[in-house]
Nucleic acid binder design. Structure first.
Lengths: 350, 350
DNA sequence: TTGAAAGCGCTAACAC
DNA sequence: GTGTTAGCGCTTTCAA
């Protein structure tokens, strides 16, 4: 079918009456072309509708000024992060391509990373794979930056301080007088989830609160898992007065369950989330949560990647960005008169 | 820096003791290779970790089995659609790359489309551009399918039946006895938004209801715009008893405003949305809305594109998929004793 | 069934 | 400052 619609650099050069290389230099803004010729060539290229062919560019060993991002795009957190990265990349005159990972797979098809390598100058991998697997696949073909891998990563990485963030959330609950604090975990294949869980256990020990396995319920960052986890907690004979959920989405799931049980947030149970997704400040109740520095993470990861692309050595740099507790409506001091023995009606998910 | 880490086809061929072309034929599953050689070559390629270089493949005029999607990824609707497309593409043994459009720009950087053309076999463009602009940029270089362009599109397109969907939503409200029905519009640069608006005006005429310009408030599909639009409506001397919002997100914004004003949904005002995003069945109140056939749209658009890629002529095919009214909790029959003159407290958005 | 040659569009390296 | 050459990895001819 229709091919060769775009003029080639050779055609531009011919029209401009110069050699291919002169045209190339002019187009790429390289030294070694007289100002007049350069201007001439650029004008002609523009008139002819010339567009550089990135495949050819890449094939001949040059940079394409494209970066790629591999991510699971199904959560507000990751999509906002990706949006932010795109903006940063564009500001640096790079384009960004996204590979949206199938949600349930445990590891990325190796061929995808290969594919991206062939097109892009560098890749940012968000989330969920074991570092050693990534390593075996990528093995230094092109620069890679990971997000959320945490300290185990063999790659340069950018991550939020999940541990300290969780600590501050839990400390907030303790300061409010809560003693029976439950934790709804995230998907433990993610370092971020593991860090938040670790903080939960550490803070209990630190505050000399008993660790009750019943209060630590498995979740997977989904709304549904938060809903179900909360129902388990509500069914306990001695239910918690506060819940720390591993992310905002599951926190809202928990809140839904609490309300269906006829209880109120924060009146009966305080809830803290993690991430500070946009709707956390819009939905009722506005959620007390730990803000991840999304924009900074986007900026840091892209800049780190571009530095690597530029050949600057930043060997295995691990950037950890601070998180921030945002106190809103979903938490409140523990009431002195705790109604311990109130009957609990357990709702059922849809 | 590190280059040529991947073995080339030539190297595989040499190890296998065959010519480059024989290896190519074997790898690409083409006829013209003896079964034994084919097996041999495939085994060796696998052992050597051979991966086809798509840039080279594309450059030499072949298919890459990659499709690209251009979309604004900031809404649940588009990201879910993209997710669905990815699944369909993978099922057809294609990979899919996403270009995430900067949200506020009115038109896509032409260079992006060019870029994608150089990598992919075809492109799906979701949303927001004037068809004529797209046309001027793309001009038949490679197959393009558009989503949401509606009838004006010069390209093959897939779209939900926005007009009929809106009609059914409004008819539902009328059947419930509502007479003062407001409309919070979407971003009118989108055909989908224009179709929904058209349905609003048509249904009023059809039901012999007066058209009151005050009841038609401009929105842009965002939660905030829904919130503000609802506040305007609540401030009217004779406020509406029902609101049709152009999408779910702005419907929830409207609901938030109504509640802040001390009124209830659907008790005082019924609200209908559009899209049926996942949380519409989870948030309180569960939203009455018009479901867009997301999976079907994903399937139809990818299949249409792949057909075009395969060279099948489907010239300017316009696929319109049916929508479906989903009645949930946010709508209720108009109360006979309408409290017309109740004082309205107007909240202010954050 | 196989292979050799040419070229896709570009850039790096080395001329002049 | 400018041009020539070679080659990136692959596929399409076309010839054996």
């Amino acid at each position: 079918m229709m091919k060769r619609q775009y003029p080639t650099l050779a055609e531009v050069a011919k029209v401009a009456g110069v050699s291919l290389m002169t045209a190339s230099r002019a187009i790429n803004n390289r030294p070694g072309v007289s100002p007049e010729k350069r201007e001439d060539i650029l004008r002609i290229a523009d008139e002819m509708g010339y567009v550089v062919n990135r495949a050819a560019q890449k094939l001949s060993g040059a940079r394409t000024r494209i970066i790629a991002v591999v991510a699971e795009l199904h959560t507000p957190f990751t999509s906002d992060l990706v949006l932010g990265m795109g903006a940063v990349a564009r500001a640096a005159d790079y384009e960004m391509l996204v590979y949206s990972l199938p949600v349930c797979d445990r590891r990325p098809p190796g061929s995808i990373l290969d594919l991206l390598h062939q097109i892009a100058d560098g890749v940012i991998v968000i989330l969920p794979y074991e570092s050693d697997y990534l390593e075996s696949v990528v093995s230094a073909h092109i620069p890679v930056v990971t997000i959320e891998q945490g300290a185990v990563s063999a790659f340069p990485s950018v991550t939020a301080d999940n541990y300290q963030g969780a600590i501050s959330a839990l400390q907030h609950l303790i300061e409010l007088g809560h003693r029976r604090i439950a934790f709804i975990s995230g998907n433990d294949r993610l370092t971020s989830a593991r860090d938040r869980r670790r903080a939960y256990r550490d803070i209990l020990a630190q505050a000399r609160l008993p660790y009750d396995p019943d209060l630590e319920v498995a979740g997977d960052f989904s709304r549904k898992s938060g809903f179900e986890a909360a129902n388990k907690l509500l069914a306990l004979p001695d239910r918690p007065t506060a819940i720390f959920a591993a992310n905002d989405i599951s926190a809202y799931g928990a809140i839904a369950a609490i309300r269906e049980a006829g209880l109120s947030v924060p009146g009966d149970i305080s809830v803290v989330g993690f991430d500070d997704i946009p709707i956390a400040s819009q939905l009722h109740p506005q959620l007390t949560t730990v803000r991840q520095p999304l924009q900074q993470m986007a900026r840091a990861s892209v800049n780190l990647l571009l530095a690597l692309v530029a050949g600057l050595d930043a060997p295995s740099e691990q950037i950890v960005l601070p998180t921030q507790l945002i106190v809103r409506e979903s938490t409140t001091p523990l009431k002195a008169r705790k109604r311990k023995d109130e009957a609990v009606k357990v709702g059922v998910g849809r």
